[in-house]
Amino acid sequence: MFFVVHAQAPGLGARVEGVTDVVTGRGLARFLERLDLHGWQGEQRWADADRDLIVKARYESGGQVGLTWVLRPWRSVFGGWDVGVTAWLEAGAAKDGVAAQFHDFLTAEGFPV
């Protein structure tokens, strides 16, 4: 299974195609699910097999989790570039909801879990 990651804002459009989660099953969803509600020190990271997509998680006081989605296509014919977008979530229900959505998205009939 391959998927596309697209980041868009006024004056910015970044897209990475062929991102895969096959090597680790639903690794991205599991990574998000394992982020501790009670916080942690430093940064936790997940990357797809080709490192085209990197997700960095940072816990801030007040129960906020910053998820930075870094798109970095190594196969670009135009040279290297990357773009990062940070989304802030509540460490509890909001983070769990995102993890559940990724579980649903990355589950396909016949797809190995």
Rank of each mutant, 00 (worst) to 15 (best):
M1G: 12
V4F: 07
V4I: 13
V5D: 03
H6V: 10
Q8A: 13
P10Q: 14
P10D: 15
P10H: 09
L12K: 11
R15S: 13
V16D: 06
V16G: 05
E17W: 11
D21S: 12
D21W: 00
D21M: 03
V23Q: 13
V23A: 15
V23Y: 11
T24N: 07
G25A: 08
R26M: 02
R26P: 08
G27M: 05
G27E: 05
A29T: 05
F31K: 00
R34H: 13
R34E: 14
R34T: 13
D36K: 09
D36P: 07
H38R: 12
E43L: 14
Q44S: 14
R45I: 03
R51T: 14
R51H: 03
D52L: 05
V55H: 02
K56I: 03
A57R: 05
A57G: 10
R58S: 08
R58H: 05
G63K: 06
V65L: 09
G66V: 00
W69H: 05
V70W: 06
L71D: 07
R75H: 13
S76F: 08
F78T: 14
G80L: 10
W81T: 07
W81F: 12
W81P: 03
G84P: 10
T86Q: 04
A87G: 07
L89H: 11
A93R: 15
A94P: 07
K95A: 06
G97C: 08
G97R: 15
V98A: 11
A99F: 11
D104T: 09
T107F: 04
E109V: 02
E109G: 02
F111R: 02
P112R: 07
V113F: 13
